[in-house]
Write a protein that binds this DNA or RNA. Sequence first.
DNA 1: ACTGTAACGCACAGTACTTGGCATTAAGTC
DNA 2: GACTTAATGCCAAGTACTGTGCGTTACAGT
Lengths: 183, 183
Amino acid sequence: MVAESGPRRRTGGRSAVVLTSIRKAVEELITEGGSEAITIPMVAERAGVNHSSIYRRWGDARTMINDLATYRLDPERGLPDTGDLRADLTAWAQELIGHYSIPVNAALLRGGAAAAGERESDCLRDRRAEAAGFAARSGSTFSGDDVIDRVVAPIIYRAVFLPWTLTEADVHTYVDELCDRSA
Amino acid sequence: MVAESGPRRRTGGRSAVVLTSIRKAVEELITEGGSEAITIPMVAERAGVNHSSIYRRWGDARTMINDLATYRLDPERGLPDTGDLRADLTAWAQELIGHYSIPVNAALLRGGAAAAGERESDCLRDRRAEAAGFAARSGSTFSGDDVIDRVVAPIIYRAVFLPWTLTEADVHTYVDELCDRSA
DNA sequence: ACTGTAACGCACAGTACTTGGCATTAAGTC
DNA sequence: GACTTAATGCCAAGTACTGTGCGTTACAGT
């Protein structure tokens, strides 16, 4: 998934089918037993794919899961942009909550968390870029870090550690406190 | 580590030495390669302990790591309580930052995150109990959930996903916004 | 000290994962 | 449609992890 130079990649046809099968299998398995219970032979068997194909593509389960987690929310999907910053932020935050309310996405997030802390291993980098985009629209009312601290962090914290409370996250209060800061 | 009824446990002497050795080995290994790269034979070899002792005590690596992560910050250590709630909260938050600034603690936290989402598998439950204690002292100014959302979540988010920015977390602002809410 | 037994070390068997060579299939290009 | 070769499937060997039975050690309580 990372852009590479070199020989022409084959992204369609059979390769695409294999990738789709693998993704489906990983998501099923991760929902059932979490990210740490996944092995490559398990994925291969459920996907109906030979295990050597997976080893060659990713090398190990950790790399595979992190890769699949990173691209689970399409970075090209487009962000809310009605001109009303507060409404757009709220809609965006609610999209995040909806996304991580689905068990498979929360489980993938936990897998990404386990692999985090290293450079180039961050399944939330696209989310931070989106936060920075909103901050830019705010002038200097708040920064990208402020969006992370006050809106993204509470949502992600709940998604990882307290998934059953995720829908109770009070998005409106988060956004209001962010937009109405006296600082 | 979990309190159990039944036959009298042996917590001292050789058992304590074994546990200490295992803890040290796990912390070294997790610092070196993250929580997912750990296997029980690796821990056993480095700790100079037979692997069967580890299998019998925890069963699998995931359970072991989550258990060690849960009790890394002693729940009995005592909390700041000078009478100045704002100062106490600030000191507590700074203690958390100091704790997770140490790479091994952050790595253990990631290991705990990977195992989270299941009941009885939550390495931050003691932190939430502490947050609830502060909330109780505040009367009804803020709740335990508020402390989590506004103070704990930003710190934990950074510790897991952006450890190199953890020390930039603005504890004073977090606490001020929590204590000065107009709501 | 003496006793009961929890916890440990050792050894072995069973299972599962990992890796590479080789043949086959089919995506991308002209 | 023909060609190049990326990607996959198959297989087999090597390696590592998992789990248990049994004897030994030594903690905890008397």
